[in-house]
Simulated scan of single mutants.
Amino acid sequence: MSSAVSTPDSVLQQLQWRYATKKFDPSKTISDDAWKTLEQSMVLAPSSFGLQPWKFFVVGNPEIRRELLAHSWGQAQVVDASHLVVFAIKKDLNAADVDRYLDRMAEVQQTPVENLQKFGSVVKGFMEKPPYPLDINEWSTRQVYIALGQFMTAAAVLGIDTCPMEGFVPAKYDEVLGLPAQGYKAVVVCPVGYRSDEDHSAQRPKVRFNTEDVVEYIN
Rank of each mutant, 00 (worst) to 15 (best):
W139E: 10
W139V: 08
S140L: 01
S140P: 03
T141D: 03
R142D: 11
R142T: 00
Q143W: 11
Y145Q: 06
Y145D: 07
I146E: 02
I146F: 13
I146H: 05
I146A: 06
A147V: 02
A147Y: 11
Q150N: 15
F151R: 04
F151P: 08
F151G: 07
F151I: 07
M152I: 13
M152A: 14
M152T: 12
T153A: 13
A154V: 04
A154D: 07
A155F: 08
A155C: 10
A155P: 12
A156W: 09
A156Q: 05
V157I: 15
L158H: 13
G159W: 05
G159R: 05
G159L: 04
I160N: 04
I160Y: 08
T162P: 09
C163T: 04
C163V: 09
C163G: 09
P164F: 02
P164W: 00
E166P: 00
G167I: 03
G167A: 15
G167T: 02
F168I: 01
F168G: 08
F168A: 00
P170W: 06
P170A: 09
A171T: 13
A171Y: 01
K172T: 05
K172D: 15
K172G: 01
D174G: 07
D174M: 02
D174L: 04
E175Y: 01
V176Y: 01
V176R: 04
L177W: 09
P180L: 11
P180N: 10
P180C: 11
Q182M: 14
Q182H: 12
Q182Y: 01
Y184S: 05
K185S: 15
K185V: 00
K185Y: 15
A186E: 05
A186L: 05
A186M: 06
V187I: 15
V188M: 14
V188C: 15
V189T: 15
